[in-house]
Computed example of a mutant assay.
Amino acid sequence: MSRARLRWNSQPVNRAAATAAGRGARLAAEHLLGVSRDRVPIEEGTLERSGTVTADEANGAAVVSYDTPYAVRQHEDMTLDHDAGRTAKYLEDPFDEEQQAMQEIIAAQVRRALRG
């Protein structure tokens, strides 16, 4: 009976997966930004245009934010009136609803990196 010995160096695989997960986190955040922009209250478009993604791909982190003095109030105050299709919780609701899609975006990036 012959024997084989396998020595597995997981570091390159782990590095590739982590890099891909970071890229996936950025892409998932960009997806979330797109969905939330469709719901953000709009008067002149300033709030919508202020939406950005900030990513730290090396650490697998990404953040979606809106940067106007009234962004938090528009997000949190459920008593404000908005145009049809525009709403408070314009970031929180899409975040909750798009969890599966965002996870799939990240997973696809990792799969792609590990295939190659």
Rank of each mutant, 00 (worst) to 15 (best):
N9W: 03
L47C: 08
D56R: 14
V40T: 10
A62G: 04
V40P: 01
N14R: 09
T19G: 08
N59Y: 00
S36F: 04
Q11W: 06
V13L: 15
V63K: 10
A17D: 06
R73F: 12
G24D: 07
H31R: 11
R23V: 15
D38G: 11
E44Q: 10
A61P: 00
T19C: 01
T46H: 10
P69V: 08
H75N: 07
E76K: 05
S65C: 08
H75D: 11
A16L: 09
P41Y: 15
E43T: 11
S50Q: 14
A28S: 09
M78T: 12
D67E: 14
T79Q: 01
V53R: 08
A18P: 00
T52D: 11
T54Y: 03
E44N: 14
E44L: 14
R73V: 15
T68P: 05
A18L: 13
Y70Q: 11
L47P: 01
G45S: 10
E48I: 04
V53E: 11
T54H: 05
V40H: 01
E30G: 03
R26E: 15
N59A: 11
S50C: 09
A17F: 03
E43A: 11
D77H: 01
R37S: 15
D38H: 06
N59V: 01
A20K: 05
R49H: 09
L80P: 00
H31L: 09
R23H: 12
L80C: 03
S65V: 01
S10Y: 04
A29L: 13
N14E: 13
N9Y: 05
G60A: 03
A28T: 11
D83T: 04
A71E: 10
M78N: 02
D56A: 10
A28H: 13
E30W: 02
A71R: 06
A20E: 08
A21I: 14
L47M: 15
G60E: 05
D56V: 06
A29N: 04
R49S: 14
G34L: 03
L27E: 15
E48F: 08
E43M: 04
L27I: 09
V72A: 15
E57I: 12
D38E: 15
G22T: 12
E30A: 12
R26W: 01
D67T: 10
D38T: 14
G45W: 08
T46K: 14
E43S: 11
G60V: 02
Y70R: 10
A16V: 03
R39N: 10
G34C: 04
H75A: 10
A62N: 00
V63G: 00
V13N: 01
V72S: 07
G60W: 06
A28M: 09
R73H: 12
Y70G: 09
L47K: 01
R15C: 00
G45I: 05
G51N: 01
Q74L: 14
D56P: 08
N9T: 05
H75T: 08
A71N: 13
R73D: 07
E44M: 11
M78F: 02
R49E: 09
Y70V: 08
S10H: 03
A20F: 06
E48W: 06
A58Y: 00
R39F: 05
Q74H: 12
D67I: 11
T68D: 00
D67S: 15
L33P: 04
R73E: 06
G45M: 13
L80I: 13
A21Q: 09
H75S: 07
R23W: 04
